[in-house]
Amino acid sequence: MAVAGITESEGRLIVALEGEIDLEQAGAVRRALLDALKKGRNVLVDLSQVTYIDSSGIASLVEGLQVAKKQKSDLALVAVSQRVRRVLELARLDKVFQIHTDLAAATAGTIPGGAGTSGN
């Protein structure tokens, strides 16, 4: 399954995704993100084990971000591979999402998107 697990760390929910996120898996990813956000927490999406993503998967991430913003919580991406980054760039979303290099960096900063933020 695309959703490998959901863990809690320092007040944030970490949704770990894995494998190929295409039309088949996008629905499960969307539900996992929205469930996590329903708990009102800030959500980190761990993409380190994601080998493929396309517009369907990106759409789920975008929907999660929109919900997060609406409820004044946060949704950030962690450990984005070169391949996933390329797709985010194609969608011009690489500047829209907060992207952390790894979980340590994401949890280290008190202000999400602060020092640990990796952007272009």
């Binding site: 396309d54 517009s55 369907s56 990106i58 759409a59 975008v62 929907e63 971000l65 929109q66 797709v87 194609l90 969608a91 011009r92 979303l93 829209v96």
Partner: peptide, 18 residues
Amino acid sequence: PLDDVRPGGLGTHFIRAV
């Protein structure tokens, strides 16, 4: 249109881009 963050049409944009 790329300033619109909604997902529709993204796939077609990807195809043309790559």
